[in-house]
Design a protein around this nucleic acid. Sequence first.
DNA 1: TTGTAAGCGTTATCAA
DNA 2: TTGATAACGCTTACAA
Lengths: 342, 342
Amino acid sequence: MAKIDEVAKLAKVSKGTVSNVFSQKRPTSDEVKERVMTVSRQLNYVPNHIARSLATKKTMAIGLTIPHGSFFFSAFHTQFINGVILEASYYGYRVLLDMIPVQKVKTPFLSSYPIDGAVVMSPTTDDDRINLMHGEQIPFVTVGRVMNTNIHKSFSVDNDNHKIIESICKYLINKGHKDIMFLNANELMTVSIDRKAGFIKAMKDHQLDVEDHMIHHKPALNTSEYMDYGYAETIEILGNQKKKVTAIIADDDRTAFSVLNALKDLNLSVPEDVSLFVICGDLSMMVQSNPSLTSMDLQPSELGAQSVRLLMHQLGVLQGDFSENMIIESKIIERNSCLTIG
Amino acid sequence: MAKIDEVAKLAKVSKGTVSNVFSQKRPTSDEVKERVMTVSRQLNYVPNHIARSLATKKTMAIGLTIPHGSFFFSAFHTQFINGVILEASYYGYRVLLDMIPVQKVKTPFLSSYPIDGAVVMSPTTDDDRINLMHGEQIPFVTVGRVMNTNIHKSFSVDNDNHKIIESICKYLINKGHKDIMFLNANELMTVSIDRKAGFIKAMKDHQLDVEDHMIHHKPALNTSEYMDYGYAETIEILGNQKKKVTAIIADDDRTAFSVLNALKDLNLSVPEDVSLFVICGDLSMMVQSNPSLTSMDLQPSELGAQSVRLLMHQLGVLQGDFSENMIIESKIIERNSCLTIG
DNA sequence: TTGTAAGCGTTATCAA
DNA sequence: TTGATAACGCTTACAA
């Protein structure tokens, strides 16, 4: 790799000028610009990213912390990440993947974190990753509300989880459903807290009682129960306990898939016996299922893009006003898995 | 952020010594070590990663290039990435996500690539990303065979794709199947080429003809056909063309899901009417499907881990002998979706 | 518009 | 085992 000095010498300019040609931070004459570029191509020169970072104090990389463990992604994660990468690259930023364990303090760093900011997925209550970012003074935005006791101001993108679940409930209740089972996200996740509250409120608003068997939380990653989430609950509540359930809300496409299998095993059909509503499922899965699945579109890739934009604002890359906590619209996509009853 | 000089001054040692305490590259006395660490904690000091990179010429990061586009991951991708991240972090490396477009030359870099090496997923024939790595002299390992005309030596991890498909065919043929439909990966991917060859050979070996309708390739990402892959082919061949097909091999769990839906719509059941074999599916999906799905386990997370290890060898992090092209074992996991017929 | 030179915060080399 | 000092390759005032 050639370095800036060699280019400068060959192009008969100073290294400062070469620097300016590449960074475009100061104007250079066309003549010089061309001379420098020609020589650079000859020498196969590109500015050294690390040296530049050291001088500018910017790494041009952002961290993306993802749920830790032998995770697997739902459509939400995948599309979200896609949105992040696309938007980040638009601003010339790269994305560093992180797997700081959720709910477990990381051993102290051996060196500083080479990122300018971070996007934190799936925050939990008193999320250690967030405390870490906070302590290291790294700008960050979370996907979902922050619920760390010591952090009072934070930036986040989110759906209106409260409203989401309320409108789903309203949608189902309007179709005559009273006995709804809600398969919520993991208990620790902040979204699940809002959704639970929204569910309870919606039911209360319609004079419906919320019984224990109506709300479930996704088990932690890496537990054996995790794999069976949706299947086990459906079999247990509808099969063993023989509770009356006319509609099920699944927190993602994986869970929905499990519910579908359980219902099949129980010889129950969708939507005739049980209606199924999916929160943010993979499009092809929603459409191809038979019946196709009614779902709530959370616009994950838009969430990803906006989270990056919010971060860019904090980094000063993006100018102008912006709201610290951005809500992304979500909407019900009606397909054929929810039936009017009663 | 405190810097090394301040620590050195307060601990009454030279910065070189402070450096050595943190990097552990040269021995330091316990007394000094403790003094330095105490001061560092006081000042909240950690070595600056960028400055260290500049001096050592190592970024301690590896790139992970993933298929570009509005991609979504199959279980294979997810588990593979998991393996990569885990193994990389084991060696103190971070993972930079890349989305260099497949089959499309990237605009020239504005700066060097801040990675020490890269893992390239899903290589295609004459993959531009690989030419790029090659040109930039960045050590890399591919997941799957490299088929770039100008590159003769390369490092890769892979399953034995030829053998995989052969053993699947053999497995099905032994169960009496002659009319097998193979839903292959994308045509451009090197794995699909090997698998196609393996399929043809296996059939030939058993005196079975390979007709056109028996092999299909996954459409390119971001095409409308992509979403329907598996469904469309099943409907077309079994439904419209009424070809005799007693067994279907699906290239991943997504495709298998689509096939299942198509078969349901055709009123065909698995495995009574059609046997279904999945190459590398998500475990929960394989198990929960009814019937559970017989599949070939490609050990994706092991592939990910090994790809990192191979890279570490190239980077000199790992010593000793190693083979340039590593084959990961795969094995058939028999479940209930393949029936003996005839 | 361009050149000069002082950083940026480490590590590495060579003495001590 | 430790200290002094020159790299590492770039950016950025400040001067010209």
